[in-house]
């Protein structure tokens, strides 16, 4: 699956991860995610851990669509995945460890690219996280440029 390959490549570089959710009244919300991994490429299942300091985001996830965008820090190569959550739960120990590893990789990439001190970047980390498992319905190349928004796997414009 194209999304799995793209996402894995981007994640390995220490990508920045951001999440878009929508409340029941249609208000969008931007948050950060701290890890993502492909659970099963064939069934297009993906798991990510995101900030949940404001529990409103957990409400947003219930039965609604969600978007996850990952972007390489240096190249801005980006992918956006859209789908419906199938599980919303407290992060497991493995989730927490993966989030720790990925966030450090992300901070290191930012530090090497832009010079931001890692110890300051850690202020971005959330106090509370939630793990989300989703089925990817659409995937898009989100790299800035004329192709931004084109479908990764024959899907529609993003």
């Amino acid at each position: 699956m194209a999304f799995a390959t793209e996402l894995t490549t981007i994640l390995e570089s220490g990508a920045g991860l951001v999440v878009g959710t929508v409340s029941t009244d249609g208000t969008p919300r931007a948050d950060r995610a701290w890890s993502a991994s492909v659970v099963d490429a064939d069934s297009r299942r993906l798991r990510f851990v995101m900030s949940a300091d404001d529990l409103a985001v957990v409400d947003n996830l219930q039965g609604a669509m969600v978007s996850l965008t990952g972007a390489e820090v240096v190249t801005y190569r980006s992918v956006q995945l859209k789908g419906r959550p199938v599980a919303i739960e407290a992060p497991t120990a493995a989730d927490v460890e993966l989030a720790r590893l990925h966030s450090e990789r992300f901070f290191d990439a930012v530090h090497r690219s832009d010079g931001n001190p890692v110890e300051s970047l850690r202020r971005m980390l959330p106090h509370r996280m939630v793990a989300v498992e989703m089925v990817v319905e659409e995937s898009f190349d989100q790299t800035p440029g004329p192709s931004a928004g084109s479908a990764l796997a024959g899907a529609t414009d993003g």
């Binding site: 920045g16 969008p28 919300r29 996850l68 801005y76 956006q80 859209k82």
Partner: peptide, 14 residues
């Protein structure tokens, strides 16, 4: 930036 379509599909981008 996060936006959403009228039918509730979010879009999130740097």
């Amino acid at each position: 930036l996060a936006t959403a379509s009228a039918d509730g599909i979010p879009n999130v981008t740097y």
